[in-house]
């Protein structure tokens, strides 16, 4: 199995909102890293998780599948999911895969946090 080429850093934007900063690749090999980051982001009274894709430099269809399962897990925990930092290419992938219908997409962190 290949190593995950990603670094995910979790920070609190407020008591109820966590941000996951993603640097690197989103592929099927990052499942454990994504699960760990989401678990850390969910600690406390988290009502929303914001994914920061500003440092994303590669994503394949296995990675998109992981985002779907993460979304389901977040919904089960009563959390909203939002994202920002996607360039035009990745925005188009979110539209094509219709993930944009379930995850709010914003230009920057201020907008994403303002929507929650």
């Amino acid at each position: 199995m290949q190593d995950a080429q990603v670094v995910m850093t979790v920070r609190k934007a407020s008591d109820s909102v966590s941000v996951i900063d993603i640097e690197g690749e989103i592929t099927s090999f990052v499942e454990d890293a994504l699960n760990r980051a989401h678990a850390e982001a969910s600690e406390g009274a988290t009502k929303a998780v914001v994914l920061n894709f500003d440092g994303l430099d590669y994503m394949n269809s296995g990675g998109i599948g992981l985002l779907v399962t993460m979304l389901i897990r977040a919904n089960r925990q009563g959390q909203k999911l939002a994202a920002y930092g996607l360039n035009e290419h990745y925005r188009q992938i979110f539209e094509l895969t219709r993930l944009d219908e379930a995850i709010g997409i914003y230009d920057d962190e201020r907008q994403a946090l303002g929507s929650l």
Partner: peptide
């Protein structure tokens, strides 16, 4: 830099284009 202005990602050729 606005996110949409970033350089073309390595995976760009691997994905289908816009399909309505």
């Amino acid at each position: 830099q606005h996110p949409s202005e970033k350089k073309t990602p390595r995976d760009a050729a691997n994905w289908a284009g816009r399909v309505d």
